[in-house]
């Protein structure tokens, strides 16, 4: 019994008068003002943009992504959403974040997962520019068709339903960043038979050709 009492008084002394746990007030400030990048990512982005083979959309824990994409393009995508499957996160568009919070989140993620460079590298322009569908057809047949033709082993990228789901910018991202863990290479990088991957123009050409396969030429805006 004495020992129990002593034990408890030791506990009391150890925990002291200031309770160590984070107070709700502190937690609240974190919600309203500055965001912890990791926790903001974990609750708002991780569901789709996880890492490795996890997650359905492009992983953000991905150095290649941070090498190519610039802050401006990422902030644009987070703020206003993209295609049919990336929601807008800006408060004025119904999302949870202010513009400042989105900017700070992007900077925070770049610090966590980037290589210290501001983006715009990786030997490729970070945005989709005009391409030639006919040139793209050739690129597709040589670089993509072996897996992604109508009956290809990795599934068709000209499936009309798929093309209705994805924007041209989304197609561009899929080509450039790939999903290497799932067997889709990142085409801005060297690969067997193509020491420089695809050039910026070739990517835009092939996107242009895939986009031309849309039924009734329906474009996904944004």
């Amino acid at each position: 019994m004495k020992r129990a009492v002593m034990f408890c008084s030791m506990v009391l002394c150890a925990s002291g008068c200031d309770r160590p746990s984070a107070s709700p007030a502190v937690q609240h400030v974190a919600l309203a003002g500055e965001l912890s990048t990791q926790s903001a990512f974990d609750t708002n982005c991780r569901g789709c943009h996880s890492q490795g083979a996890e997650g359905a959309a492009l992983p953000l824990v991905n150095a290649n992504y941070w090498k190519v994409a610039t802050d401006a393009t990422i902030i644009q995508a987070i703020s206003h959403g993209q295609g049919r499957s990336m929601p807008a996160y800006l408060a004025s568009e119904g999302g949870p974040f202010t513009a400042e919070q989105i900017t700070s989140l992007v900077h925070g993620m770049r610090t966590l997962w980037g290589d210290g460079q501001p983006g715009g590298g990786g030997g490729i322009s970070p945005v989709l520019t005009a391409g030639s569908a006919s040139a793209g057809a050739l690129v597709f047949s040589t670089a993509c068709a072996s897996c992604h033709a109508g009956q290809g082993t990795a599934g068709s990228v000209v499936d009309p339903m798929y093309l209705r789901m994805i924007s041209d910018q989304g197609l561009w991202s899929a080509v450039v960043y790939g999903r290497s863990e799932l067997g889709m290479p990142a085409w801005n990088q060297a690969m067997p038979g193509r020491p420089t991957g695809l050039s910026a123009q070739e990517v835009c050409d092939v996107v242009s050709w895939i986009s031309s396969q849309r039924v009734s030429n329906e474009k996904v805006t944004k």
Binding site: D42, T43, S50, A53, R84, S85, A154, S156, V157, Y162
Partner: peptide, 24 residues
Amino acid sequence: WSALPTPAKFTHGRTPLEMQGAVV
């Protein structure tokens, strides 16, 4: 929806459309 990633075993070997479905 925004915090729990699709487990890796459900993303392997899926077609582009199925992956878009996983996103949806």
